[in-house]
């Protein structure tokens, strides 16, 4: 339980829980904690978001700066820090993808740094950022890129090819289906992960972790493809 912090309440001196003193109820300075800990949740990925929302509302009622508008400046400051943490934590945990990314980062995967370095490198060299095409998409991506190129050429020439547009739309809905299916697949990994949290070997955990990472990358790849198709169709 995250409530078992060892600090004492600044106001009444009683040993306190994380956000408030359990004795006098006063807001406490935030202690460094990850988002799962903030909500007193285990570091697991399957999460009841309705329950999370309820907890978010309960904590908001207690931590929001509005509640401390007439309090001492120090308490106002803590309430602002605590409620910003609450909001950041809720925003991250309620979203399945953000939640997974956050957990992976807690597990030592440097998601942002990876993409940031790659982006900056691409920008510096002027090259298009290379992404590894997921093997199962290779064939489709090849065909899609050809068609996109053709559509762009046609648009430039002022031509109109309804059949090609129709083809692209089909590709797009196909990709969107795959995109959705990945979420279901991800949920499977969550279950595996959650089981391993309490009783798994380090190797097993790393294996699932990498599977999730791979899935998120594939998902991003598809998202970018869909964006490209949309752009080509709209322009």
């Amino acid at each position: 339980m995250p409530g078992e912090a060892t600090s004492t309440c600044w106001s009444c001196g009683t040993m306190r829980a994380v956000h408030f003193c359990s004795a006098c109820g006063k807001v406490q300075p935030p202690v460094p904690a990850d988002y799962f800990t903030f909500f007193a949740l285990p570091r697991k990925l399957s999460l009841d978001t309705a329950l999370l929302e309820r907890e978010f509302y309960v904590l908001s009622r207690k931590l929001h700066p509005d509640v401390y508008a007439q309090s001492q400046p120090q308490e106002q400051e803590w309430s602002m820090e605590q409620s910003s943490l609450l909001n950041d934590a809720y925003r991250t945990l309620k979203d399945p993808i953000k939640r997974t990314e956050y957990l992976l980062r807690l597990e030592g995967v440097e998601l942002e740094e990876q993409s940031k370095t790659a982006t900056e490198k691409a920008r510096a060299t002027g090259e298009v950022k290379k992404q590894v095409v997921p093997p199962d998409l290779l064939e489709e991506v090849f065909e899609l890129n050809m068609q996109l190129e053709e559509l762009r050429m046609q648009k430039k020439m002022g031509e109109d090819d309804p059949a090609l547009v129709e083809e692209l739309r089909k590709h797009k809905s196909n990709l969107e289906e795959k995109y959705e299916a990945l979420l279901a697949e991800l949920k499977g990994h969550w279950n595996q992960w959650d089981k391993l949290v309490d009783s798994g070997s380090e190797d097993d955990r790393i294996k699932v972790r990498n599977q999730m990472l791979d899935l998120l990358n594939r998902r991003n790849y598809i998202r970018n493809l869909v964006r490209d198709v949309n752009e080509a169709l709209e322009n």
């Binding site: 602002m80 820090e81 910003s84 909001n87 950041d88 925003r91 920008r123």
Partner: peptide, 21 residues
């Protein structure tokens, strides 16, 4: 602002406030 004059977003619009990064 990051290299190349690009904006790196650190708090997205429609985030509940207070919010931090």
């Amino acid at each position: 602002e990051v290299a190349g004059g690009v904006t790196d977003k650190i708090i997205l619009r429609n985030s509940t406030i207070p919010a931090s990064a």
